[in-house]
């Protein structure tokens, strides 16, 4: 125990004293998470809109209030004619103009049909699609509640509900994704680098000559990174939760246990060659297997493209295979 304790202490010294290691361990995950979180978005918030309300009755006012209180939209300005619409879009700030026709509320009640025009800036088609569909949703929702007897302006409106991620928040996708990526990076890269460093520096021989048992050396190498991975996982989940509002619905302990399992079983500490033969064969369809090989070869051996040809072909093949499967599956479901 004392032997192991001294060894683990030393590993922590290595990690804590190397700024590059610290940067990879903690700088990358946090930066990545924050960048992904703010740049990649599938939901909208605070989109600037302009409203041309020709009716200015109670109904249009309430719809406007509803739109603006949703958190998705900010009123940039009220328009008094249709003339300025193009000019507004050219300025770039406003992404959508909503036009209510004359006597909107009256028509709605009397004729059961009133029209609202949504004009979107489609230079970003994805955003335009999101903005118009959010608006449609809010308008329909309001009318349905206020006038339950009325037929909807849009004749058929499918009611969509996104289970587990009701608001289609992209954070739900990239928080676990980043976690997997980071843990792979830490567990795979950092531990193998730390072992290679011992070999390069000649200190590995000292460990091998000493009474330290191989199991102690392995545990001594794995445990510090395991602890750091758990801390990292905790940080990622916390940022996900407090900054991006991703809930952890299940058990946090289970999450961490699965994480540890991934680190230990990822073929990082158990060389593929020492796995049972069925596992070795199965491993060939695991993209991480090739990624690991390539990472190690490039980083540690300085291999060039042609040295990696086999891995490259295998990984490309798998990529095409999985992509085709995804497309095939997609076709079948739509």
């Amino acid at each position: 125990m004392k032997q192991l304790k001294s060894f683990i202490k030393k590993e922590f010294f290595h990690i804590l004293r190397d700024p590059r290691t610290m940067l990879i361990l903690f700088g990358i995950p946090i930066t990545q998470l924050l960048i992904f979180g703010t740049v990649i978005k599938n939901e909208i918030s605070d989109v600037h809109i302009a409203i041309y309300d020709q009716s200015k009755d109670e109904t249009t006012m309430q719809i406007t209030n509803k739109l603006l209180s949703s958190g998705y939209f900010i009123l940039n300005q009220n328009l008094e004619s249709t003339d300025g619409i193009e000019a507004i879009f050219k300025k770039g700030k406003v992404k959508q103009v909503i036009v209510f026709e004359n006597d909107f509320g009256q028509k709605l009640i009397r004729e059961g049909n009133a029209s609202v025009q949504l004009i979107a800036d489609a230079t970003d088609p994805n955003l335009a699609r999101l903005v118009t569909s959010y608006t449609t949703g809010i308008v329909n929702d309001y009318i349905k509640k206020m006038h339950p007897n009325l037929q909807m302006p849009l004749k058929t409106e499918p009611e969509v509900r996104m289970y587990f991620n009701e608001e289609m928040k992209s954070a739900y996708q990239f928080v676990p994704g980043t976690m997997a990526l980071i843990l792979m990076l830490i567990s795979a890269l950092m531990t193998s680098i730390s072992i290679t460093r011992e070999k390069e520096m000649g200190t590995m021989e000292i460990l091998l000559v000493s009474p330290l048992k191989p199991v102690q050396i392995i545990i001594g190498k794995v445990l510090p990174y395991l602890i750091l991975s758990i801390i990292n996982g905790f940080i990622i989940v916390s940022i996900g939760h407090f900054v991006f509002g991703v809930p952890v619905t299940g058990s946090f302990v289970l999450l961490m246990l699965e994480t540890i399992l991934f680190i230990l079983m990822g073929g990082i500490f158990t060389p593929v060659e020492s796995m049972p033969s069925w596992a070795q064969i199965a491993n060939h369809i695991n993209p991480i297997y090739y990624l690991m090989r390539m990472l190690r070869m490039i980083i540690l051996k300085g291999s060039g493209f042609f040295d990696l040809l086999e891995e490259f072909i295998a990984l490309s093949g798998l990529g095409i295979l999985f992509l085709s499967l995804a497309i095939w599956k997609y076709r079948k479901t739509t």
Binding site: K10, H14, M201, T203, E205, I206, V209, S210
Partner: peptide
């Protein structure tokens, strides 16, 4: 292993540890 010491041409200490920490490490290992 318990009865031998070893020093290689690549002097066998950890560069990023202090003198005292290196000694503590070896004392711990043995």
């Amino acid at each position: 292993k318990k009865n031998i010491g070893y020093m290689s041409q690549k002097f066998s200490l950890y560069e990023d540890l202090t003198i005292a920490e290196n000694i503590q490490l070896y004392a711990g290992i043995y």
